[in-house]
């Protein structure tokens, strides 16, 4: 197992190296950073001075090494627009995004697996058919339309929940959470549901398909022939056997949640990293874009590593390596 994790770890490092190279190249290929920093009326001398300050005249390789070195220390440079360290900006915004992703992942998992198991077992009931039809909406409608529709219904029409923003935050010193107050929860519900809907339907359909397949296997038939109860068959025998492929998808999906949060955060004006990224794109704020890219890739890689380790927990055949 150690061998396996080391192998995965080295693959992860390779991925991160490639991503950092791509994000570095943003500096050189996306716009002229000096133009972005100074006004239209800056003199030639001012421009040259800034170029030197930023080290833009050094050879590419030197610049990349410097970029890598800084990055490893968590230093992504100054934002062109706000003129503050990028890592500070990201860490300010991170709790908002992570809490949003966390809540929506929980919704997607709980609801998705429960409904998947239900529709897998009660294949022919009208409730299953209804769930499956509605779930098509989740897959086919784009996130921003669902978000706008939810705002219209629950915020504008029914006035139950706030339409945008994050409120009721409590500062824990190192983390600003909105999960400790009613206000905070009221604010997070709509964006979290919006964000989770796509993943939820995906998990639902996957669990259902896996359940249907597992229910056909010999060991389920044998469990029936031993007179075991439906509950034991469905949950002890069937569900766990559906989990290996489900875990794979969930791993990719949580990464997807972070990526999709860009849209959801924009729709709900949620002050997370996604919204920050969109604003950075508007102003060609390259340091923020580059840092965000590296940061999202890092999360993806970490999540997939955790998923690989989870395989061992779930499946003894992998755990014991035969």
């Amino acid at each position: 197992m150690l061998f396996f994790i080391l192998k995965r770890l080295s693959q992860s490092i390779l991925v991160m190296a490639i991503v950092s190279a791509v994000s570095f190249s943003l500096f050189n290929f996306v716009g002229d950073p000096v133009n972005n920093m100074v006004g239209q009326d800056a003199t030639r001398e001012q421009r040259v001075e800034i170029r030197q300050q930023l080290g833009l005249d050094d050879p590419v390789l030197t610049q990349y090494t410097r970029f890598l070195g800084n990055m490893l220390q968590g230093d992504f440079g100054l934002s062109y627009r706000i003129k503050r360290p990028v890592d500070e900006l990201i860490f300010e915004r991170l709790p908002a995004t992570l809490e949003l992703v966390f809540v929506s992942a929980i919704i997607a998992l709980l609801v998705g697996i429960t409904m998947g198991v239900y529709t897998g077992i009660r294949r022919k009931s009208w409730a299953s058919r209804a769930i499956l039809s509605i779930s098509l909406v989740g897959v086919s409608l784009p996130t921003f339309i669902i978000g706008i529709a939810l705002i219209y219904i629950f915020a504008v029409h029914l006035r139950w929940l706030p339409s945008s923003g994050r409120s009721g935050t409590v500062d824990l010193g190192w983390w600003k959470t909105s999960l400790l107050t009613v206000d905070g929860w009221r604010a997070i519900i709509l964006p979290a549901i919006t964000l989770s809907l796509f993943q939820l339907t995906l998990i639902l359909r996957l669990v259902r398909a896996e359940m249907l397949e597992v229910m056909q296997t010999d060991f389920i038939k044998f469990a029936r022939a031993r007179g075991l109860s439906e509950r034991a068959i469905n949950f002890r025998h069937a569900l766990r056997n559906t989990l290996v492929p489900v875990i794979t998808i969930i791993g990719i999906n949580i990464g997807g949640l972070i990526a999709f949060s860009v849209i959801t955060e924009t729709v709900f004006q949620w002050p997370g990293t996604g919204l920050m990224f969109i604003q950075a794109v508007d102003f060609v704020d390259v340091p923020i874009m580059a840092a965000y890219l590296v940061f999202v890739a890092l999360l993806f890689v970490l999540i997939n590593l955790v998923v690989d380790i989870l395989y061992f927990v779930v499946d003894p055949r992998i755990r014991l390596g035969d």
Partner: peptide, 26 residues
Amino acid sequence: EMRRIRGDRIGMIFQDPQTSLNPLMT
């Protein structure tokens, strides 16, 4: 009623021992 008969009074053995046991349970 059938569940009380299956296993308790009538046992069944299937063809393929590779697939008739749950692979994830001891």
